[in-house]
Design a protein around this nucleic acid. Structure first.
Length: 418
RNA sequence: GCGGGUGUAGCUCAGCUGGUUAGAGCACUGGAUUGUGAUUCCAGGGGUCGCGGGUUCGAGUCCCGUCAUCCGCCCCA
């Protein structure tokens, strides 16, 4: 074959594309339950939008962005995440002024990384963003919507990992103590952590190396350094989750990678995913809207990885039914039958019954084989005899039983069986 | 960005230290059944051995490069 999809990209093709579409259908049902409305933004934006909101020091900005110049020399970037675009669209469309302040989105994101299990260069996220409410109930709604969505998809046993990263004031004070406490023992830290200590001190808490983790055991927790209002908010989120029966676990070391997060940070992981185990995550970003030049507007949201959700589903959920389980296979034998079958298929579709028409030259054996392989629930057999008698032979592909039905009665017969 | 594994039929893979026409299972096509699938039996089609170069009398097999993929690190969805 001459061409293949670029590195780190994938087609969504049958049979997997059926589950892919189903996930979108579930999303379209679940998120509107929270008053969230669909939001779609361009897949590319001005590069500044991302560098300024995510933070120059983050991995995404420093080494993972698909940045290019257009023909007029403007620097554009394929979006690596959805929140920055959502905030931009929220402000540009003056949505807040119209009372639109909760949204959900589904679409591709792009990061230039080395592909591996659960990581591709183009991947899809489904996410929500809530604007304008500073109170903990928004955090709870966002987290509960993610939990409900996963549950509706068929994922079980997921636990939300929860933390608070405070606000600039209390986090700043905490980072200062962190630095002073570690200043004397930088030699004990891994190379990466020494680097982090200067660039992005909070991230050292996230270090996976056993030696570092042990060293950090004795450090004070960020959550015990929260200022009064942040502490109160954090408590409120926990109380809300408890009363909404969303299972969560406090994870004091959880630090989200992007600069814009304030207060609530959370993540959902799965043990079925290997090294890339994050299914979704999010948090509060109370300062981002203002930073973009909008009015002070608190906000909270999450993003989940579509491919990863489906990977876990595939490993844990029962085998999905055939994509054609509701369909009927209409097999015509001969030209006269073909005309009859075409008319019949129209009436079936009018009645909402999916119908695969086969008026080709193959033998009945071949047609039945295909019907069986595709998993159709029934095969309608129409040959010269049936045309003559104004009847259709309806064969149930599960039981093998077949029955001659009046042409006029076929639709009703199949409706009853469905 | 770093380290390692793999690439042979549509799919899953076998192919010993280099040696003649590269195999199996499943799938596909045809037949036993000229109108009956998911079980059986028989026959058949299908391969630039990822791609490019090198070593050799000879390369699927060895070497180099390249592309893709997988696993780990980093990070995240």
């Amino acid at each position: 074959m001459k061409y293949q999809a670029p590195r780190g990209t994938h087609d969504q093709i049958p049979p997997g594309s059926v589950a892919w579409k189903r996930l979108q259908t579930v999303a379209d049902r679940v998120f509107p339950l929270y008053g969230m409305l669909p939001l779609e933004t361009p897949v590319f934006e001005h590069t500044d939008l991302f560098t300024r909101s995510l933070g120059e020091e983050t991995d995404i900005v420093s080494k993972e962005m698909y940045t290019f110049q257009d023909r007029k020399g403007r620097s554009l970037t394929l979006r690596p995440e959805g929140t920055a675009s959502a905030v931009r669209a929220y402000l540009q469309g003056r949505l807040g002024e119209q009372g639109f302040d909760r949204f959900y989105y589904f679409g591709p994101m792009f990061r230039y990384e080395r592909p591996q299990a659960g990581r591709t260069r183009q991947f899809y996220q489904i996410g929500v963003e809530l604007f304008g409410d500073a109170g903990p109930s928004s955090d709870v709604e966002v987290i509960e919507s993610l939990h409900r969505f996963c549950h509706e998809l068929g994922l079980r046993g997921l636990v939300v990992q929860l933390n608070s990263v405070g606000c600039p004031e209390c986090r700043g004070r905490y980072v200062a103590t962190l630095k002073s406490q570690l200043a004397g023992c930088t030699d004990d830290l891994c190379e990466l952590c020494r680097h982090r200590l200067n660039r992005n001190p909070l991230r050292i808490l996230d270090c996976k190396k056993a030696a570092c983790r042990e060293r950090y055991q004795s450090l004070p927790l960020l959550t015990s350094h929260l200022c009064g209002p942040c502490q109160e908010h954090f408590q409120g989120v926990q109380a809300g989750l408890t009363s909404m029966e969303v299972p969560f676990r406090l994870e004091p070391w959880l630090v989200r990678g992007l600069d814009y997060y304030t207060r609530t940070a959370f993540e959902v992981t799965s043990e079925h995913l290997g090294a890339q185990d994050a299914l979704g995550g999010g948090g509060r970003y109370d300062l981002l809207v203002e930073q973009f030049g909008g009015p002070p507007t608190p906000a909270v949201g999450f993003a989940a990885g579509v491919e990863r959700l489906l990977m876990v589903l595939e490993k844990t959920a029962p085998e999905p039914a055939s994509p054609h389980e509701r369909s009927v296979y209409a097999a015509a034998l001969g030209d006269r039958a073909a005309a009859e079958v075409m008319g019949l298929s129209r009436r079936l579709r009018d009645a909402g019954i999916p119908c695969l028409v086969d008026t080709g030259p193959g033998s009945l054996k071949k047609k039945l084989k295909l019907s069986s392989k595709l998993g159709c629930r029934a095969t309608l057999i129409v040959g010269d005899d049936e045309v003559e008698a104004r009847r259709v032979l309806v064969k149930d592909m599960g039981t093998g039983e077949q029955e001659l039905i009046d042409l006029e009665g076929v639709v009703n017969c199949l409706k009853e069986k469905a």
